[in-house]
Structure formats: structure tokens, C-alpha cells
């Protein structure tokens, strides 16, 4: 990146494993593009099951992102500004869904929000509400795995933001709320956007936790990844067409985030 000199001083025998790595990452993508039913793409994507899955994925992933924003941004603020929330336990809890196998997340969600769960039990007995295997369960599963991306991104931005700008605002007579609304929030807005996009991408691709906690019911809980998995044996071309949609979305996210990160660095 920073010129040819560095490359030249690198041992040549690293080239072989390097190329293997590129092939390893690139071949599956190439394979997908090669077997894609380019001629039937439109009919495959506009079939009822495909449209249903697309619509459901869009609704649930956006809802999950919204949920993550509403509770995740305040949590990030508390983590970066108060001692208790900055503690190792909160940090570990926030980071856990990142490394936890999604299927385990799904089992844990069942344990919490299932009919016999610690929160789901009372919820069912008092309000008659049953969460598992509903569209809401999809949103919860997606938010569970996606929120860490948002919280960690925003927390990082808040930590690197110049606190003295907030002090400057206070000396100008701004209340804490005004400082937050007119200084802190605008300053971290690019990071909130980046975190939200990351969280949305994670929610859109969520599979394991959703399948475990919400099942795979067409039109109710069968999101894009679940629809791809379900179609793989019976309607391979549809599975590939839907996969292409997710590839394109991922590529767009990658490009948009790259711009975002660069903008963040320039500041």
C-alpha cells in the first residue's frame, strides 16, 4: 500500500501461501457467480417465496437495527462516560454475542423468552404473549447478535471524541442534555451510522439464532438466509439467486463503510 519498497523487502516465499489465501477466499465467490442462473434471475427473485423472504428480511433486519439503536446508543454513552457501565462485566456481556455460536444464542434466547423462560414465562402467564416462533422472535434474535457491532463502534467513537468540546459547550451555558444533543451526538453521528450499517448487515445475515429461537416458517420467520437454506435441496437455482442478493448487499455495505471509515479518520 505505502509503495513498492515494502513489498520488495518481503520474503518471496510468502507469495505462495498468500496466493492460496486469495484463491481460498475468491473461489467460492467465483463459483457462485459461475453457477448463477443469470437467465432466470428475475423470475427466481420475483417468485412468491423469494419475495416473501426478501420482505421479511428487510422488515426484521431494519426493526432489529432500530431496536439496537434505541437501546444500544444510550448503553454506549453510559459505557464511555460512567464508571459502572465501563466495568469489565458489562463489556464482556456486550462482546459475548460476537463470539458466541449463534445457535447457542438461540438456545439462550429460548431459555429467556420461551414459554418456560425466566422472562417468557411471566410474559405468557400474565399477558398471554408467546414470543418464540413469531416474527418478533426473529427481530429479537437478530438484535441479540447485531447490537454488539453498534455498541462497540459507538463506544469507541465516544472514547476517542474530544471531551473538551463538551467542556467548551458547558462553559457556554449548555445543560447536559443540550451538550449531548448539540455536541456529543452530532460528533459521533458518522460512527452511529457506521455501527448501524454493520449491525444491519449482521441482522440481515443472521441464521443460527433465528432458526433456533424463531424456526423457519414461510412468511413468518423464514428470512433470506433461512429461505436459501430451505431452497438449497429442492430449488437450487432460487437458493443461488437469493445468495447473489446477499452478496451484492454485502459488497455495497463494504463500499459504503469504507467511505465512512475514511471520513472518520480525516476528522
Amino acid at each position: 500500500m505505502t509503495g513498492k519498497r515494502r513489498t520488495e523487502s518481503t520474503p518471496w516465499y510468502l507469495v505462495v501461501p498468500g496466493v492460496v489465501a486469495i484463491a481460498f477466499l475468491g473461489l467460492p465467490l467465483l463459483g457462485l457467480l459461475l453457477i448463477a442462473p443469470w437467465g432466470d434471475l428475475l423470475p427466481e427473485l420475483t417468485s412468491e417465496e423469494a419475495l416473501q423472504a426478501l420482505r421479511l428480511s428487510l422488515i426484521t433486519s431494519l426493526s432489529a437495527t432500530g431496536l439496537a439503536l434505541v437501546v444500544g446508543v444510550p448503553l454506549a454513552v453510559l459505557m464511555s462516560r460512567t464508571r459502572w457501565f465501563a466495568g469489565p462485566w458489562v463489556r464482556a456481556l456486550v462482546t459475548l454475542p460476537l463470539v458466541l455460536p449463534p445457535v447457542v444464542g438461540g438456545v439462550a434466547l429460548l431459555a429467556a423468552f420461551g414459554r418456560n423462560g425466566i422472562a417468557g414465562g411471566p410474559l405468557y402467564e400474565l399477558a398471554g404473549v408467546q414470543l418464540p416462533f413469531t416474527t418478533l422472535a426473529v427481530v429479537i434474535a437478530e438484535a441479540f447478535v447485531a447490537m454488539p457491532f453498534l455498541v462497540i463502534t459507538v463506544d469507541g467513537a465516544l472514547r476517542s471524541a474530544d471531551r473538551r468540546l463538551e467542556q467548551a459547550a458547558a462553559t457556554l451555558g449548555a445543560s447536559r442534555w443540550t451538550v449531548f444533543r448539540r455536541v456529543t451526538l452530532p460528533l459521533i453521528a458518522p460512527s452511529i451510522a457506521a455501527g448501524a450499517v454493520l449491525a444491519w448487515a449482521r441482522a440481515l445475515g443472521e441464521f443460527g439464532a433465528t432458526l433456533t429461537f424463531a424456526g423457519s416458517f414461510p412468511g413468518v420467520t423464514r428470512t433470506l438466509p433461512l429461505a436459501i437454506y430451505a431452497a438449497l435441496d429442492v430449488q437450487r437455482s432460487q437458493a443461488i439467486a437469493l445468495s447473489l442478493v446477499l452478496v451484492i448487499v454485502s459488497a455495497v455495505i463494504l463500499v459504503s463503510l469504507r467511505g465512512q471509515f475514511l471520513a472518520g479518520m480525516r476528522r
Partner: peptide, 21 residues
């Protein structure tokens, strides 16, 4: 009296103008 009620005009060394405004 906290900063926001003090009415002290503080001009910082690096000025600290709000970059987004």
C-alpha cells in the same frame, strides 16, 4: 456552581470550535 451556570467565557488553547457547526 457548575460550568453551565458560571458565566465564565473560556477560550481554549486550540480554540475548540465545534467542528460540525
Amino acid at each position: 456552581v457548575p460550568a453551565e451556570h458560571r458565566r465564565t467565557g473560556l477560550v481554549f488553547q486550540d480554540f475548540l470550535l465545534f467542528p460540525h457547526l
